[in-house]
Every structure is written in structure tokens, then in C-alpha cells.
Design a protein around this nucleic acid. Structure first.
Lengths: 242, 242
DNA sequence: TTACATATGCTCGATACCGCACAGACATAG
DNA sequence: CTATGTCTGTGCGGTATCGAGCATATGTAA
């Protein structure tokens, strides 16, 4: 399975009206996103915004003591580099590639320019940003009140929704870092899910066998985030010919 | 001490250029914000944006089981009702008055209108929104990795920075709800801080005796949020004559 | 095939926090 | 001044999660 790359694999780019899209298309640059690459580190000036197609990026904060916690994920539904058009240019968080794949990147100057046209692209980016805020808020609440197993289910489902396949290539250690827990905590929780027949995993590969099983174990947070993304970005019109 | 009310007590309003300010001034309505009032509940259509002067508002999410957790606070540095100009109009979170006081409110229509002028006000609101996102992200990480006592210190310092006085009028129960922990957890932590001579409290009143003591116990999150607010909103020019 | 690095499984004690129950202290209205 | 409701203090057992250490399994590369 080797699909040709297209900017339209990213929902935001696909939602642009033809005239807007054509203006930016020439500036879009396809880039490979290897696992573990940092798109930006804390307080580092961003040069590009990234519109993932098959890659998934994790936005997270790393504490002084080295512990970390994901605050939101970005896949083909969104864009990495919000701070560029929000005006801050940098953030104290980091963005790391969590699932290898591809993205189209756009120079910061071009993105700002498009944003300032105050057209549909601005509207789209702002609504996406609000959805991202919802995800961050829910993550904060979820971290307080829900168990590791529930949070793992949330994370798996959200990641699966962004992934092109049913199999995720990631180790339990890496998931633990995202969720901000010990690796053994993930081993436990994943073991439960595997015993229940919901997932199967082996050395860095997780396959979802029964999505509905995960949905039965997940906390409300998944549904709320999902619904909010749907609500905020449901009326995007895809360009003809997609 | 009875200061005359003025929109300039809110930093965002105070930062507007005279011409912009005069355009909205006629629409600003001073409102009292009693403790516990909900400015909006989940998915409820917002009618106004609120620019607090002396009031402090808590943005939080309430889970299905009734547990809650604050994701960010808003005082005279900001505005409640981000969703109006971001385009979503509603959010799954709630906004509740956490410290009684006053705010100036603006009809949603007027706010959107001003935002869409794409002038300094838009720029200001977007940078404020980014600062708010930083607060949400840090809250998520803080909830994962820092102790109740550290989080209490963070909350006290952030609230103090927004409060007009050194004394906060709030019960331990209410603080517990904000932080998403048991009331007893706050009793413990506050007891420690009182024994250390950093604060003094009695039945719903907390007085900060030694700010530097709190700063010594707080986690990094306070500083990061503080710095980010400073960075994003430092260059606001206050109108002459304030 | 073998060696090696790495991913996962398991155990143990420690601890932060929870849920519950109840006692005492304080503020304020009558 | 007293009664009442609210706020705070404390103790108890229970549990999720942590931290550390080590055993085992599994890919991969020599």
C-alpha cells in the first residue's frame, strides 16, 4: 500500500477553498517525519508550521526533573505551530514525532500572511485551535481523575483515529512518557486490555483487535474531545475532486 | 478602600489604543460577579464576554461523576469567553466566579465585530489566548507530576497575582474543588504552609504572610506560566492618563 | 546461528492520596 | 447569648501508583 502523497490528506489543507489552496500550494513542502524528531523545543523560534498527513505529533511539556506529560496530539486533522499565528511565536512546550510519517510544511512567513488575510483559513485555524484547547483542558482533568487504564484507552483511541492503520508502532515505554506514568503502569494496563482481547501487542507494535472493547473501557474524555473536534470542524467543505 | 470602577482595571481593555477603546467603551457594562455564579455551563451559548477587574473566574471541567478540575483561571489580566472569537461559541467547560468582584461585559456581537477588525485588539486577544493555552498545558503536566502542596502554592500565587488584596476569601473545600482533590488534602497542605509561617487562615479567609515562602515551595509551573504571560503581554502599551 | 540490545513481565516495599466518619471550633443570625 | 450551620482537624483503612531491581522474551545484526 503506497498512496501518492497529497496535501489533501491533511484535513485543514483539504478544507481550503481552491483559490486559497492554490496560493499556498506552491509553498507546501513534503517532509518525512522520523520517529522521535523534535519539531520544536521549549522557547525555540518556530520556522515552519507542519500539516501532518500520516505522521502524528505529540505536544508535551517536560518538567525540570525530566518527567513529561502530553497535553495534546496532532495528526492529519490539524497543524503543529499554532504559536505562529497566535502571535507568541514560541511556547514552553515541545513537539515530538510520535508516529513516523509525513507532513507538509509551510514557512512561518507564509502561514502568517495567509492567516492575516482573515479569510476561511483564519477561521479554520482558529476553530482548530479551540478544539486543541479542549483537548488540553480535558487532558488536565483526565490526569486528575481517571486511571492509567482509562487514559491508555483514551490515548489509543485518539491515536488510532489519526493513524492510517490499525497497528501502531510504539513501545510501552514511549506511551508511558506520553501519559506521564511509569512504563510498568502501561505494561499492567496493556496486559489487561490484551487479556480482554481488545488489543494485541508485541515489542513495539500494538494492534487494535476490538475497538468497541476499548470504547467500553475509556473514560468520557475521549468522547468529549471527539465530539468537540467534530462540532468545530464538521462544516468544513472539502474541495471538489477529493 | 473604595476605588472608582474603571475598565482600565482590566489589562486587556487598558491596552487598547484610544480609538479602539472609545469604540467599545459605550458597550461596556459593569456587572457584579457574586461568588459561585456560573458565567457559562458546558455547551451553553455565550451571550457576553467578561473582562474582570476585581473578580476572578475559574475555568474548569466537571466530569460525569461530578468531580471537577480547574484548567485555568482568569482575572484582570484576561477575558472570559474566548470561544466567541475563536469561532466555537461554546465549550465543554464551565466558568465560575471564584472570587467575588466586578467585571465589564461586552455583548458577543460587539466583541466579534472588534475582533474582526483585525487590529490591535485581535492581536491582543490572540496572544492572551496563547497564554491561556500555556496555563492549560502546564496544569495538565502539574496535575500529573506535582504534589498537592506544590499545586496549592501554585494556585495561591496565581490567584494572589490577580487579587486586589493579600487576603483571599475562599474555603478549603472550594480550593479542593478547583484543584480536583479532597478537602482534607487541602487541610493537610494548608496546615503545613501555616505551620511554616507562610500563610494564615481562618474559616474561609486565607492571608499570605510570606510570599517568598510560597515561592520556595511552589513547583516550576508557576514561574513558567508567569513568565509566559509576561512575555506574551509585556509589550502592551497602556493608554496615556492611566 | 549466535550475540546483543531492547522490550516486556514480575515482585517488593514505600507513599501519596482517597473515602469515610466524626469531633471540635468558629461565625453569625435570631 | 445561644443555637445552628459551616468550616476545619484528625484518624482509619484501602488503593493506585511509584521506584527500583531483576528476570525473561524477542527482534536484529554480526
Amino acid at each position: 500500500m503506497r498512496l501518492p502523497h497529497s496535501p489533501n490528506q491533511n484535513h485543514l489543507l483539504a478544507a481550503l477553498p481552491a483559490t486559497d489552496f492554490e496560493r499556498v500550494a506552491a509553498h507546501l513542502e513534503l517532509v518525512a517525519m522520523p520517529l522521535g524528531e523534535y519539531l520544536y523545543e521549549p522557547d525555540e523560534q518556530l520556522r515552519h508550521a507542519y500539516f501532518p498527513t500520516t505522521a502524528i505529533v505529540s505536544l508535551h511539556y517536560v518538567t525540570e526533573s525530566g518527567a513529561s506529560a502530553e497535553t495534546a496530539g496532532v495528526g492529519n486533522e490539524g497543524v503543529v505551530g499554532i504559536a505562529l499565528f497566535m502571535g507568541g511565536d514560541t511556547t514552553p512546550s515541545s513537539a515530538m514525532v510520535q508516529t513516523a510519517g509525513f507532513a507538509y510544511r509551510l514557512e512561518s512567513r507564509i502561514l502568517k500572511q495567509e492567516f492575516n488575510r482573515a479569510g476561511l483559513m483564519q477561521n479554520l485555524l482558529l476553530r482548530y485551535t479551540q478544539a486543541l484547547m479542549t483537548q488540553m483542558s480535558l487532558t488536565a482533568a483526565c490526569n486528575r481523575h481517571h486511571s492509567i487504564e482509562q487514559r491508555l484507552c483514551r490515548w489509543l483511541l485518539l491515536t488510532l483515529d489519526r493513524a492510517p492503520a490499525q497497528e501502531l508502532v510504539i513501545t510501552q515505554e514511549q506511551i508511558a512518557i506520553m501519559l506521564g506514568v511509569r512504563r510498568e503502569g502501561i505494561t499492567d494496563a496493556a496486559g489487561n486490555l490484551q487479556r480482554a482481547g481488545n488489543i494485541h501487542y508485541r515489542r513495539g507494535h500494538i494492534t487494535v483487535l476490538d475497538r468497541s472493547g476499548l470504547e467500553a473501557s475509556v473514560c468520557e474524555c475521549y468522547g468529549v474531545v471527539k465530539k468537540e473536534f467534530g462540532r468545530l470542524l464538521c462544516d468544513v467543505q472539502y474541495r471538489k475532486g477529493l
